[in-house]
């Protein structure tokens, strides 16, 4: 479980996040949705400590992350996996080396054990035969799977996914969503997904949080989102005519 209390952040006098409190539940896919510029990514970066919030606290289970020194934070971070919007794979390393990187840095596993774990993770994301290729030599969807394999290689307790479907075709997006959802249940992780994709929200959103103008505007699940009376959320969700037709049919 990850708990945020009264998180606020401003850049150059402009308030980006205001007094946000959220509890991300373990074993569930927690989706953060909102328009571009609403503060979703800043909120995620505050949660993982890449940005220091101006006020507020972040708890990883019972550990107050925001009060820890950098060394203790690094220890918690070994329990975090993150899937970046642009994948953030290391260009100079092969797929295999990318996935084994956290294991080499943080464990004392022998090289054959590491390789076994790497192959397991790559198979888990349905990716085989690309171990010795470089990120630039594979497709965007494959890169996303490699990034996911790397994120789960350390068996993390917390998984963050920043726009996991950006730049992917609808079919590949569904595969990635399903993988994230399955892995969340399998490892009983606390998964946080930042997305614009309403398809993801409807498919895998156990808990949905809508951020608007830097505030938590709405919280619920994928079923209740369609019957919302919240105007801003409604405008966001039904901006797509596909979603409107879906509700009309229902």
């Amino acid at each position: 479980m990850i708990k945020l209390e009264n998180i606020s952040k401003a850049f150059n006098g402009e308030q980006i996040l205001s007094d946000i409190g959220i509890t991300y539940e373990q074993g569930k896919t927690n989706l953060i949705i909102g328009a571009s510029g609403s503060g979703k990514s800043v909120l995620t970066k505050c949660t993982v400590g890449l940005i220091q919030p101006d006020t507020g606290k972040v708890f990883y289970d019972d550990r107050e992350f925001t009060a820890l020194d950098s060394k203790s934070r690094q220890e918690i971070r070994t329990e975090i996996g993150m899937l970046f919007q642009g994948n953030a794979l290391f260009d100079s390393l092969t797929i295999e080396q990318n996935v084994m990187f956290p294991l080499q840095m943080h464990t004392d596993m022998k090289s054959d054990e590491i390789l076994e774990r790497v192959n397991f993770c790559l198979e888990r994301v349905q990716l085989t035969g690309v171990n010795h290729k470089y990120p630039a030599e594979i497709s965007g969807g494959m890169q996303k799977r490699v990034a996911l394999a790397r994120a789960i290689s350390m068996k993390p307790k917390y998984l963050f996914c920043d726009e996991p479907n950006s730049g992917l075709d609808p079919q590949t997006s569904i595969v990635i969503d399903q993988l994230i959802s399955e892995i969340t249940k399998e490892y009983n992780m606390t998964t946080i997904i930042v997305t614009h994709d309403m398809n993801s929200v409807m498919e895998i959103g156990d808990k949905v949080i809508f951020i608007h103008k830097g505030r938590k505007w709405w919280e619920g699940n994928s079923d209740s989102i369609l019957s919302t009376t919240n105007k801003e959320l409604s405008d966001f969700v039904f901006a797509s005519s596909v979603m409107k037709r879906l509700v009309d049919k229902k």
Binding site: V48, G49, L50, Q74, E75, I76, R77, T78, I80, M82, F84, Q85, G86, A88, L89, F90, D91, F101, P102, M105, H106, M154, F160
Partner: peptide, 11 residues
Amino acid sequence: SEQIDALEIMG
């Protein structure tokens, strides 16, 4: 390309 952020997130 967020590779440095990825390193930091990995601890």
